[in-house]
Design a protein around this nucleic acid. Structure first.
Lengths: 137, 137
DNA sequence: ATTTCAAATGCAACAATGATGCAAATGTAT
DNA sequence: ATACATTTGCATCATTGTTGCATTTGAAAT
């Protein structure tokens, strides 16, 4: 799926800012922060425009936020776009990268009586494979 | 354990702001937002003092943050104080409350080769028992 | 109880971020 | 090509995170 199609499917106007954000996020191997995305965008957009484009894409569940300790915010393409299942996210304490663990499904949690769950977020923190390999050199 | 002991154990000076925050958070049945804690405090403290007290208590792992969608931040007493295991947190989509699910332990996730995990955060979103009961009335 | 000194507070100030109103520019359906 | 609703860019404001510094306070030593 390409950015334009995604916008059309969601009845959103195809503006270069929105298109650019989707392209960058879809092609990234890792989740990216707002600044990382802005740096990779071709055009230069007003802070407000960028902020509103993000908000729109989030509201339409095209991209989603991953928050680490309320400090670091990274964005990734949503499951509904890539047609993958809900998955855990991994945060590397060493290189501060965030990765979608597409092969690590969210497990089911047994809640006390009366509670019903709709969605579960899992953030695993540790050392990623790149940082581990570097240690061995 | 009482607030003064906790401060002593961590080699922190016993100031009324710190003591107050710990008291409020320990006695709360749910995790509280910064404003909810401030409202329940007896004294009136400068914004910076309050902010720095929070930071200190977090750094010493006396209280911990729970973040929901990077919008809502709630605080609760840390596991190391209450001597409970790591547990999932529950966010109620209806009343916006955050509760520590002390009886819902974090499950183990199998990561791809080369990844090592240190800590896992789980946030379950849904409807809490209070809100469910209200629906039936 | 008084003295002493490092630590914490309160205040000013600044940066970053979230948010809104509005005129101008742009996308898209006709 | 035209028309109109949507989006953009700019100004502006609120909130929050952060730091420097003079003053105050907690707690240890006397």
């Amino acid at each position: 799926m390409i950015a334009v199609e995604i916008l059309n499917n969601n009845n959103l106007k195809r503006t270069s800012c929105r298109e650019g954000i989707i392209d960058v996020v879809m092609n990234a191997k890792q989740a990216l922060s707002e600044n990382e995305i802005r740096d990779r965008l071709v055009g230069n957009y007003d802070r407000t425009t960028f902020y509103r484009s993000f908000k729109t894409l989030e509201e339409h569940k095209i991209i989603h936020k991953i928050v680490v300790d309320n400090q670091l915010i990274k964005y990734a393409i949503d499951n509904t776009i890539t047609h993958t299942d809900e998955h855990a996210h991994f945060y590397c304490n060493e290189c501060n990268s965030v990765q979608c663990m597409e092969n690590v499904p969210i497990q089911k949690y047994q809640l006390p009586d009366g509670y019903s769950d709709v969605e579960t977020e899992v953030l695993i923190k540790g050392t990623c494979v790149n940082c581990k390999n570097q240690e061995n050199n």
